[in-house]
Simulated scan of single mutants.
Amino acid sequence: MPVLVAIPARFASTRYPGKPLVPLTGATGVSRSLIERSWRAAREVSGVDRVVVATDDARIREACEAFGAEVVMTSSDCANGTERCAETHAALGGGFDIVVNLQGDAPLTPHWFIEDLVAGLRAAPDAGVATPVLRCDGAALNGFLADRREGRVGGTTAVFAADHSAMYFSKEVIPFTSRRYGDDEETPVFHHVGVYAYRPDALAAYPAWPTGPLEQLEGLEQLRFMENGRKVLCVEVEARGRQFWELNNPEDVPRLERMMREMGLE
Rank of each mutant, 00 (worst) to 15 (best):
A123W: 05
D126G: 10
A124Q: 09
E172L: 06
T156S: 11
V153R: 14
A161W: 00
L121Y: 01
G143K: 00
A166P: 01
Y168G: 10
G128N: 11
P125R: 03
T156L: 10
T156I: 13
G128A: 06
A146T: 12
S170C: 00
M167A: 14
F160C: 02
D137L: 07
F160Y: 06
R148T: 10
T157Q: 04
N142L: 08
G120E: 12
L134H: 03
F144I: 07
S170G: 02
A162H: 09
G155V: 07
A119C: 11
G143R: 06
E150R: 15
P132H: 07
A127Q: 01
R152Y: 15
T157C: 07
F144Y: 14
V153G: 12
T131R: 10
P132I: 13
R152I: 11
D147P: 04
A139E: 12
A119L: 13
V159M: 01
L121V: 07
R122S: 07
V153N: 13
H164F: 10
A139H: 05
G151Y: 11
G154T: 00
G151C: 06
F160E: 04
R122L: 11
R152A: 14
G128E: 11
T131Q: 09
L134Q: 02
G143P: 01
E150S: 14
A139W: 08
T131N: 04
F160P: 04
R149V: 13
R122E: 03
G120S: 09
V159T: 00
A123P: 03
R152C: 08
G138H: 03
L141C: 00
G151W: 12
A119D: 15
L121P: 00
A166I: 10
A162G: 12
S170L: 00
D126N: 09
P125S: 02
A119K: 15
F169V: 05
P132E: 04
N142P: 03
E150Q: 15
Y168E: 13
L145R: 12
G154L: 02
A140W: 05
A146K: 08
V159D: 02
A162M: 10
A139M: 06
R122K: 14
G138Y: 02
N142D: 13
A139Q: 11
S165K: 13
R149S: 07
P125L: 04
K171D: 11
R152V: 13
A124D: 09
R149N: 06
F169A: 03
T157H: 04
A158C: 09
G154P: 00
G143A: 13
E172V: 02
R148K: 09
N142C: 10
L121W: 01
P132G: 11
G138F: 05
R149Y: 09
